[in-house]
Structure formats: structure tokens, C-alpha cells
Design a binder for these strands. Structure first.
Lengths: 366, 366
DNA sequence: TGACTATTTTGGAACGATCCAATAAATCTC
DNA sequence: GAGATTTATTGGATCGTTCCAAAATAGTCA
């Protein structure tokens, strides 16, 4: 016996006014008399009324107060934090968000976006799955739904974007490793056919070139952009004859995997091998050794993307705007630059240095 | 010039039928003639029609195909994976989900649940913030909205729940550490005033008691249930005179922090100190040393919770059902079990074993 | 008091899809 | 070929809110 919903009419009846008046109270209109407002509010509380936004949204002037957020891998801390950042500003703005995970499946992405549209989102933030094309956003923009693309760029799409400065970050990180004395620097993880990977790799290569080092193709190894991928990437990188002594990793997850892989072969990241990540996820700081990484502040990026979207929703204009979030290298321990004390090992009795490189040794175990 | 929405009437006109017929086509009714259906579908594609679910939901017989998911800390892998598990089955069932992060704020939680209700969720899965009371769910259940509480129990709430068997898991893990010869076993991390922590701590204490060991209050140290919390917890635990030789950690995040903290003081987890986590997050397997932990399979739990909710939504009956997800101890390396000769002494010259870390040695620096 | 503002309140027509009862068209039955 | 049956189609009322034009009430001033 599910009793039928409590509606404005019920409230009106209970408060002895018309439904129009109740409606005015609901939207806090100054037109309504204080006493009347109090009576209506009392009735609302009394009857346990809940506003039906769906009904209100029917009138085409209304905004649904719903946005869609689509990410490709929520299990990756980077995206989880991105989502949390968005959530914060959306909640504060009185919006509620659909969130969907695509797991890089373009089909799921299409379904999920279609589904969100049916439910009437007033905007969409998406970190597109691999293979997403500019044309995929056509229907959205044509319908006047603002879209913000984050993290991964979609060439030719007439939507707003918020990307991190991958080129600059990678270049800076690579230069840092070079300044520490490294000459054989690997680029590990990620898929080179993605825009993000391409940009980071370009920064890496140009930094090498500028220093007069040549980019050995054997030093660039693709892998899944995950911790497990990092393990396999470093394994492969150490198979070649002229081994790297340091690596720029596609992201922090890969970097952690690389650290795992190094330890598995008896090498200590930061001491025996320089490791630099990308993203600066929350664990990067507390990990041991603390991860030197390019900070992109995912939560901040999420907040910023949300603000971009809100601005467009509120202004009513759908005008593409491309923003680039600047990044900065955060030097911690995994690159070897701040090497302090854990030199430990009996076969190892160097004094402390503040750079890597001097006490690096080759552990031949293969 | 945002042209007004395309509606069923427009489609009807274009296809030369009535809006009722269009509606029948939309819900794939067998009543409609094949040719008519084709005509209508063509018009739908032609005009770029998008279904307006909000309008459909007005009729009270309809189900909104929206569920709400509320978690308290999406940056914790455990919850991220839980969410992904739910997302999977919800997507497959044609539902779309609101997702909100409360960050343990009971106010945000209340706001966000209210907001979701206004948008017409047909069900809610919630991992309640600390301090949530049974009464908070009253309005939901009274309105016939099924609720599934996950992870944390709310005593007295008349809603369904899916909890992991914290008691059994903690007991099993503690027994395992005891069987490895440990006598001073700490319980690190978490807040003892939460249900989850209470259950796990009980399992820990009863295992100790059953083995004739007494539970030293100094060995139980509270901390935030995060990686950073784990670092501080182990630091505090190592300050006491009669130090622990192993620890059961509140969750995997804490366990990783404990490993970090141990390394910072020159101790190698798994060799010099037994560490057991709880949750079995995805990184537990690939970490070095691989984390011995109580597997609760967060993704599987998410899927299961989603299924419970769907069952209730579909059956229309709101009947509370309490499920307990069984857990199992996954023995990896961090507990030291794969190292046979654990003796806890400072002088330590074990031979090679088939684990990582054979050439790592103890660094006494404290 | 009556005319004239302000200030409040209010029916009814949207909004877009569904569903029921009723109709129209096609097929069958004897 | 008239009636019964099956198969397709269709107006209109409905869901809960907003908004507009209009009405009712209160307040002001000559």
C-alpha cells in the first residue's frame, strides 16, 4: 500500500492556499507574505513533502541541476581524485552528478552518455575513452549541452577542454634526470598512440635532444598505464644490453610498478635507479621512497573542470574554451636527488650524497 | 536560437502517425506493425529525437531507472572499486547512477541524499558516514525507496545491508600471525568507535585470548584509516617498551603506510616485521612485498550490493535483508609466512628464499 | 468614500510521455 | 456477407510543477 506521492496540491490544501502560492514558497519568492510562507513551510514539513524536480524540469526554461561525469578508470587514483574534485564543486553548486566508468570501452561510453542525455543532464565532463572521435560530441553540442573534455584531448572537437601541460612536465622531469647525471633514461608505460602519451613522450625526447642525447627506441617501452604495467615495463627495459639508469614513467601508477619491479631485482629506487612519475597522486608523497613526480593536482583539476562547466551552464552560451593546467616537478626521493640516509646494504658503504649517480652500481644478477 | 526540444508529437507528425503509436514504438511494444515501426524509427533518427525520461517518470507507475550511490571516501581504493563494481551491474541493468562523496561529513550526506530524492532515485546504496543513525533512513523507507547499507552497519536501521565478515577475517588473520610465532601483535589504524573497527578489533582480541595472549591496550593504536594514518600508527606503536613484532592493520591503506613507516626506520616488512592488511585492494597483490591481507573483494561486494538493490527495486517489496560477505585470508609476503625462519632477532642471516628481499638486510639505525 | 497603487494570491494552460478505453482496419467463421 | 475476432491505431486525461494573466486584498491619498 504505497501511498501516493505528496504534491504541491496536498500542501496547498493543508495550508489553505493555492498550489501557485506553494510553488512561490518553494522557490523562495519575495512576493509571498511572511505568514503565508510560514504556514506553507509548516505543511511541507508536516506532510514530508519532497520536491519533484523531474516535473519541474518539464518546462523547457528549467535547468535540470544534473551534470554527467564520465571517466575511463575510476580504480586509478588519478581519476578517483579528479572525480572527487568535481564532486566538491558540483555539490556546492547544488548540482548532483551522474558518474559512470567506461573502462576504456567506447561502446559503454556511448551508451552511458546517451542514457545521461535521456535523463536530462545540463552539462557533461568527460575523460574520453581511447578512440573517441570529435564527431561523438556533435549531438551534444547541437542540443546545446555544454561539454568539457578533461585529461585527454580530442582533436577537432568543438568543446571545451582542460588538459595538463604534458609536454612541459615531461620535458622538465627529463631535464631534471639529466641534471642528476643520467644519460640512459627510459620512458616507461602508457600507450604511445594516445595523445597524452604522445605529448609526454615528445617532452621527453626534446629534452634528450636538447642535451645532445639520442632517444633510443629500446628505451621507450609501452605498457598498460597501471601498476602491473609498470612492473612489466621495467622488466623489459632491463633486458636490453645498455640498460637505463633512470626512467620517466607515464604516470604514478606505472612508477609504483617500476619501483616494485626494481626491488624484485634487488635494486632500490632512488638509490640504484632514478624513478620519476607523473600525476602526483596522493600516495606519491607518503610512499617510500617518496615519489618524485610531475604534479598535476588531479583534485584541483577536477574542481577547475567543474567550474568551467558551471560557467558555461550558467552563461547559457556554449563557447569552446581550451585551458591548459600548468604542472610542476615535485622533487622527492625516488629520483635520487635528495638521497639522504637509506644507503644501507653491506655491499654498499658510500657516504651520503645529494645526487644520485656517484654511488650507483650495476647489480648484475641475470 | 536553441530550437525547442524534439518530442513524440514531432516524431508522430513526421511519421504520419499518432503520438500514442510513437510511444508504443519507444517501448518496443509488439502491438505495432513492422512497417509503422520502421517509419517511426526512421523519423526518430532523422530528427535526432532524445527520449525524455523525466516526463515519463511523472506517471507514478514508472521507475526512474536512477539509483543513488553515496560513499564516504572515493579516494580510498576500496571505495573506488566498490563503486566500479556497482557501476558495472547498474549499467548493465540500464540504470544510471548518481554518485556522491561525503568525506565523512554527515551534513553533506544529508544534503546529497535529499538532493537525490528530489531527482527521483528508485533506490540507494550507501556506505554511511560516521555518525549516521537509523532514523536518517526513515524518510527513505517510508517513501518506499529501497536502501542498501554497505560496509558499515547501522544498528537498528530497517534497511538491507551487505557487510563483510570483519570479525572472522580479523580473527583468522590474527591466528595466522600467532601461528607464525608472533606474541606481540599490534592492531593499527582505524577509529575504535566505528562499527567496522569494533568488529575487527573483537576478532583480533578473541584470537589473542584464545591463544592465551593478553591484549595490551598499548598495542592498539587508532589513526586515520589512510596510508598517512598507517605511518603515524606504526611510529607510535614502536615507541612503547615491549614492541610488537607484527601488526594486523585496519585496512590495506593503513598497511601500506605501516610498510612505509617500517622502511623509514630500516625495517623490512615481511622479514623484520609481520604486516597483515584488510580489504585486498588491487595494489595488494603487486606491491613489494605483496601484502598478506583479508580479501573482501570490494568490486565483488559492489556488484553484490547492486544486485541486492535491483532485486528490491524490481520486486517492489521493501524487505530488509542482511547479507554478510565471507572473507578469506590471502597469504602473501608481508606477513613473513613465506620466510620460514622468522625469529625476530636483530642478528639475522637467513639464506635465500624464493621471495623478494633475500639480499636485503636489516638496518639497525634507531 | 472612491480612485489608485502596492502587495498577495490564484486558476488554468503548458511541459512530454504514458495508458486506458475506444475506434478502425484486417482477418476469420459459418 | 453479417457477425465475431484479431490486429493496429488513436484521442484525451493524467502525472507534478511553473508561469502568466488576472483577480483579490490591503494600503494610500485626495
Amino acid at each position: 500500500m504505497t501511498r501516493s506521492r505528496v504534491t504541491v496540491v496536498d500542501i496547498a490544501q493543508a495550508a489553505g492556499v493555492s498550489k501557485s502560492t506553494v510553488s512561490l514558497v518553494l522557490q523562495a519568492s519575495p512576493l509571498v507574505n511572511e505568514q503565508t510562507r510560514a504556514k506553507v513551510n509548516a505543511a511541507i514539513r508536516e506532510l514530508g513533502y519532497v520536491y519533484n524536480r523531474g516535473a519541474a524540469n518539464l518546462r523547457q526554461t528549467a535547468s535540470s541541476k544534473i551534470v554527467g561525469i564520465v571517466v575511463n578508470d575510476l580504480t586509478n587514483s588519478f581519476f578517483a581524485e579528479l572525480a572527487v574534485g568535481m564532486d566538491m564543486v558540483m555539490q556546492s553548486a547544488g548540482f548532483v552528478q551522474f558518474l559512470a566508468n567506461t573502462g576504456e570501452s567506447i561502446d559503454r561510453q556511448r551508451e552511458v552518455v546517451a542514457s545521461m542525455r535521456e535523463h536530462g543532464i545540463s552539462g557533461l565532463i568527460i575523460s574520453p575513452a581511447r578512440g573517441t572521435e570529435a564527431a561523438d560530441f556533435k549531438p551534444l553540442t547541437a542540443a546545446g549541452v555544454p561539454v568539457v573534455v578533461v585529461v585527454r584531448n580530442i582533436a577537432g572537437a568543438k568543446v571545451s577542454s582542460l588538459l595538463s601541460d604534458n609536454y612541459a612536465g615531461a620535458r622538465q622531469a627529463t631535464e631534471h634526470l639529466i641534471s642528476l647525471g643520467h644519460r640512459r633514461i627510459a620512458f616507461l608505460g602508457g600507450f604511445s598512440d594516445t595523445a597524452v602519451s604522445g605529448e609526454r613522450m615528445l617532452g621527453y625526447r626534446e629534452a634528450l635532444a636538447a642535451a645532445g642525447l639520442d632517444a633510443d627506441a629500446a628505451l621507450m617501452v609501452n605498457s598498460a598505464p597501471s601498476r602491473a604495467g609498470g612492473v612489466t615495463a621495467i622488466e623489459r627495459a632491463m633486458l636490453i644490453a645498455d640498460r637505463p639508469t633512470a626512467a620517466l614513467c607515464f604516470n604514478d601508477a606505472v612508477a609504483f610498478g617500476v619501483c616494485d619491479g626494481l626491488r624484485a631485482r634487488g635494486l632500490e629506487p632512488g638509490r640504484d635507479f632514478g624513478v620519476v612519475g607523473f600525476d602526483d597522486v596522493i600516495e606519491a608523497e607518503t610512499a617510500v621512497p617518496a615519489l618524485t613526480t610531475v604534479s598535476v593536482d588531479p583534485q584541483g583539476m577536477g574542481r577547475r573542470a567543474a567550474q568551467m562547466l558551471l560557467k558555461q551552464i550558467n552563461s547559457g552560451r556554449v563557447e569552446a574554451e581550451a585551458q591548459v593546467a600548468s604542472v610542476r616537478l615535485v622533487v622527492r626521493q625516488s629520483c635520487g636527488a635528495t638521497l639522504k640516509t637509506w644507503d644501507g646494504g653491506a655491499t654498499h658503504d658510500t657516504a651520503s650524497h645529494d645526487t644520485v649517480g656517484t654511488d650507483r652500481r650495476q647489480h648484475d644478477r641475470a
